[in-house]
Design a protein around this nucleic acid. Sequence first.
RNA 1: GCGGGUGUAGUCUAGUGGUAGGACAGGGGCUUCCCAAGCCUCUAGCCCGGGUUCGAAUCCCGGCACCCGCACCA
Length: 561
Amino acid sequence: MRNDVLDIAKRRGFFWQAFEIYGGLGGFYDYGPLGTALKENIIAAWRKHFVIKEGLAEIDSPNLTPREVFEASGHLDEFADFLTKCTRCGAVFRVDELTGATPGDVESARTMLREGGAKCSECGGELSDPVEFNLMFRTYAGAGMEREVYLRPETAQGIFVNFLNYYRYFREKLPFGVAQVGKGFRNEISPRKGLLRQREFNMAEIEVFLDPDEKVWGDFRDVEDEVLTLLTRGGEEHTLTAREALERGIVCAEPLLYFMARTKRFLVDLGIDEEKIRFRQHPEEELAHYSSDCWDCEVRISYGWIEVVGIADRTAFDLSRHMEHSGVDLRAFRRYSAPVKRKVRKIVPNMKTLGPMFRNRAAEVAAALERADPSSVDPSGRIAVKVENELIVVPPEGFTVEEMEEEVTGERIVPHVIEPSFGIDRILYALMEHAYYTRPDSGYRVLRFRPSIAPIKAAVLPLMAKDGLDNVAMEIHTLLRNAGIRCYYDDSGSIGRRYARADEIGVPFAVTVDYQTLEDGTVTVRERDSTEQVRVRKEELPAILKGLVEETLCFGDVKGV
RNA sequence: GCGGGUGUAGUCUAGUGGUAGGACAGGGGCUUCCCAAGCCUCUAGCCCGGGUUCGAAUCCCGGCACCCGCACCA
């Protein structure tokens, strides 16, 4: 079955190994005409399900990202490393942790490891030769190559670093969500399994920013009846509704569960087999460095259960780290429902005396005084403040301590992030496997794409390429294309062969011009899976096909003449 | 990255040192032909690079790619 799908993928133009004429390059694929169209249709469906329905802001940030971003995100520390493995127990270690120094290349890593005489700290076994483990592609920006940049391993950072822009865009109110469709790059050690593990891949990510004390998103009632199969960290398997999962505390964060249910609905809507979808919670040790809880949506295909969507609670990790590293305040303001009044003692600088006393540093001293704690005024009435690492003692006449009433309207908080991250290529491949079947009578191959997802919507076929049937069919072909329907004309070989060719790439409808067309202007429309036909007037064809393709009209409801 | 396997037209495959063959797919034709019918015809291939040999798809070495397992998978 897998081979049939891969055969169709290559032969008919869905996808194939890239750079083949130069021997190929592992982990890189081309999408051909049909694959590109299919991918676009999947993304369009994703937009409908998430961007539009959830009211997200879709954005587009660069693939190349400066080093600093990944220093902050932790990707550099965690993944640009030399690793060694215990040959006895299989435990994995970082060379820099074992030797206390960071090696520059594999050779020096090996030397350091051997000279240090390091052994496995778990079982004392011998360690393997180190392996370079840098999953990010590095390059340089600028003529002088002065900026080190990396191809992003996820699109998420492009959203986090712009948090303030999106916060402003959403008029400074939580919660809000930002989405991005784009490419991610990971220099996988061994890319495998075709589209499933590429070095350059398509992803669609959502970052939802929430108040940590009020982690809710969407209307849970919309999804509460959705039945989910859940594999918990503890090894239990449950099949229950989202409501039950929430009430029994199987998934702790409500928005996580909400997006899990929405994800399932999206996949089923695409044509993924509902019976072959499950959610698996990451065990502690599998969690990424940034997430506190994560559920993978897995789909069963010929390769087994594969992850197609990851739904993670990234907590305040990313924003906190970018705050530390950039020095920019990335907090949101949580407004209290009513302002809180409170009495405070404050130091008020007296500029009249501070000015002559400190001259050009007076402003800094005043600022330091305002930040200082009134209780640190010493018994003699003086206070010491730090200005540019210098301790300055300000005499009593330089300030007053005043008691005043202050109105506090809110506080600053670091939002938490819920991240549903979709692997578009994996979804596309899984969809192809799930859509594939062979006709029981003939064994002919069919892709059962629903009309809105199918890359090509209609085939226009003259029964015979003569007697003027071909001309009429070509006219209809033009008519349909002008109506915005993606279709093709085919007159080669027998009519049966042409139906089979169309079925193999999942064309849902075939329009056939026959001898009766010449008499009364009607054509037949054939539905792919049932192979049933209905005869309609050719003038009505664009409207009927548009309805069928947009799924506002069912094939069974098409009125024949 | 390690171990095992595999690379022959678009796809599947025959060919174990001596002229690369087939099937399917594809193109052109014939046949009033609605589910890959038949017939004629054409296109198209030894993964790449070295070596051994008079001669390599075949043997050897290296590389690349794919598959399976391990490891890795933010």
